[in-house]
Design a protein around this nucleic acid. Structure first.
Lengths: 221, 221
DNA sequence: CTTGACATAGAACAAATGTTCATTTATATT
DNA sequence: AATATAAATGAACATTTGTTCTATGTCAAG
């Protein structure tokens, strides 16, 4: 991993774990939690490696204070206590229905330009490229999504196997939400409904346009 | 201080101290550090006030984890003097699966007794009798609910027409989630799947036990 | 005046958590 | 091969930290 040339693999792993833990929980991990994740059974080895990371300027620690490991973050995406708080509201861009391509965000959202939708605290970590769409119609029931549901999307145009995506099928002139799998050396795409009782469909990559990835669904009743 | 009308002065002080401490140090304060700043010499009084702040939705805590106090970051302007603040977290009671009756809350929840689930700000207005269950299995797909989904329930034993309820069918020994409609002068119950492509079932009221009402569904992908 | 809910207080205890120590292993250098 | 340094290991211990318990005080409602 070229990001940290002067660190061992273990030390890189520790830095990344601390960053992820802080983002997810809002407080730093303990020595033992770091050891569990990194596979170090001895608290003194964790402490030894943290001392190295501190000496090299990657972290700071306060002696005899629980959970006092803090990253000194040199990356572009500076993580600090305030900005690590995930958003509670995201913009609602519009609607998603079978017969229309979904609205796609252009540039950054201007505050107040869109209606806002409340999301759970742990559903969105970084609001960049994330937005909500409301479902119109019953065409998404194969994705176990009902009319009126709110879909939380992250704008991306490529997808990995197993990710739930919104795709526009040009020939059929239809939007569909399915799990995407590449097959036959990327010459075929299998779109798998979330409902296990339903069959997948197969499309050529040229007929398909990935418009975003689904990261959550919210249904009010 | 008009910003937190439903908090005592001490509780406001605690919220502000937590925010300042987190910003300055990058990790949350301990119970004793909060006590020192606010002038509370007893750790149980600090803990009591933190429990109140958690119940009112200002902070979250994790039981028996050091420095696990986290602010739930609402803008000061969003605190409305006229309304109670809706909860951002509710207790997760357990699981729901087809072959078992759902866990039913008994009495009020003891703080910290259950794992907490994040919900959207506008999904729950009053936490009383509200809890979450996680779906195990694919038996709920007729309700457009997937394995792993989180269902937000309000404990109630009676239902109006059209409400989505969890019912236990004694003869079938099964839990199902469907919209309930009374028919033939309350001598028959029609249970309507949320999936419009599926047929309803009809049961006698004596065979059915309403265990709660579904008020929302959350799906993380 | 009584009662119940809320808030406070201190002590004791349990558990979480960080540090120290003795020892071993791995690696680099001479 | 010898030596020095870095890295690892587990155990023991010290300290931090959160929870529980018992008791008391305040205040509003009946």
């Amino acid at each position: 991993m070229a990001n940290y040339p002067d660190l061992s693999n273990r030390q890189e792993h520790i830095v990344k774990f601390i960053r992820e833990f802080m983002a997810e929980y809002g407080y730093p991990p303990s020595i033992r939690q770091i050891g569990c994740d990194v596979g170090i059974s001895s608290t003194s080895v964790v402490s030894y490696n943290l001392n190295v990371l501190q000496r090299k300027g990657y972290i700071t620690r306060t002696r005899e204070i629980s959970r006092s490991v803090r990253l000194v973050d040199l990356d572009d995406n500076e993580v600090d206590a305030e900005s690590s708080i995930p958003p509670l509201f995201i913009p609602m861009l519009g609607y998603i229905a079978a017969g229309d391509p979904i609205p796609i965000p252009e540039g950054e959202f201007v505050q107040g330009e869109f209606e806002e939708v409340a999301v759970p605290h742990d559903m969105v970590r970084d609001i960049k490229d994330v937005y909500a769409l409301q479902v119109r119609g019953t065409s998404m029931v194969d994705a176990l999504i009902a009319d009126g549901d709110i879909i939380i999307m992250r704008h991306q145009t490529e997808a990995q196997n197993g990710e739930m995506v919104a795709v526009w099928l040009a020939e059929e002139k239809a939007t569909t939400l399915k799990k995407l799998y590449w097959e036959k050396n990327h010459t075929l795409v299998r779109l798998q409904p979330a409902n296990p009782l339903m069959e997948p469909i197969f499309v050529h990559p040229g007929n398909l346009e990935i418009q975003g990835r689904v990261i959550g669904v919210i249904r009010h009743l």
